[in-house]
């Protein structure tokens, strides 16, 4: 469960990025967060990742109250999330296998378990056979699938994808989205931040539309809002 209660975020130089967000996302939901540049999507992401602190209000993610979370506990909170970025953010000098395994090494997973689980996850994202390749040897779509596999590695309940299709071609975009839906069907909460109208309209999931730091529309089975 993710709950925003009148969340406001002001940056030190005075920009009011979020002006009072109220949003409730249940476990197992699939949500698109849409909006144009400057609407507050990125700030919302940063708050969820606890890269930034909220200025006022309350933000709860599972058992964590992010308004009170100490810096020391942040790494442990982040292990509950799986994150996918537009620019993939893979280790260029690690193989596909090592990139996925790394997320598990970080949390101290025994090597035996890593050796069992990584191939299984790579299989889930249709990357079986690519485990010894380096990121620069595979396509953008495949790199994003590696990132997705890494996000899934520790079996988190929430997957956050920030413009996951921003750097890949349309055909690959559909594949990534289908994978995210497949993951959602496995019971995970999936939040996709995007400004790609076609994708949002095609999949018709819950759509939360942001504009100028406020939610202007929140519809289940919605389309990319005209209000943004």
């Amino acid at each position: 469960m993710i709950e925003f209660r009148n969340v406001k975020k002001a940056y030190p130089h005075g920009t009011m990025a979020l002006k009072g967000i109220n949003l409730h996302i249940d476990d197992g939901e699939f949500v698109f967060i849409v909006g144009h540049s400057g609407a507050g999507k990125t700030t919302l992401m940063k708050l969820l990742l606890r890269e930034e602190r909220i200025s006022s209000g309350e933000l709860l993610v599972g058992d964590y109250d992010l308004s009170k979370l100490s810096n020391f506990k942040v790494p442990f909170y982040r292990r509950e999330l799986g994150v996918v970025f537009q620019d993939f953010r893979l280790f260029p000098k690690k193989t596909v296998y090592e990139n996925v395994a790394f997320a598990m090494e970080v949390v101290g997973t025994p090597r035996k378990k890593i050796r069992r689980r990584v191939p299984a996850i790579l299989n889930t994202v249709n990357l079986a056979g690519k485990q010894d390749s380096y990121p620069n040897e595979i396509s953008g779509g495949e790199q994003q699938r590696v990132a997705l596999a890494r996000a899934l590695a520790n079996n988190p309940q929430v997957i956050i994808a920030d413009e996951p299709t921003g750097n890949i071609d349309p055909k690959m975009s559909l594949e990534i989205m289908n994978l995210l839906l497949k993951i959602n069907k496995l019971g995970k909460t999936v939040i996709v931040v995007t400004h790609e109208k076609n994708l949002v309209d095609y999949y018709q999931q819950r759509v939360v539309s942001l504009r100028d730091g406020l939610i202007v529309e929140d519809r289940i089975g919605g389309m990319f809002s005209e209000k943004v």
């Binding site: 790494p75 982040r78 292990r79 994150v83 953010r89 893979l90 280790f91 997320a103 970080v106």
Partner: peptide, 16 residues
């Protein structure tokens, strides 16, 4: 720094 930022996102502690 990119490597370090990835580490942080996957939940690595400062010590790690």
């Amino acid at each position: 720094r990119n490597e370090i930022s990835i580490m942080r996102y996957v939940g690595a502690t400062g010590t790690f």
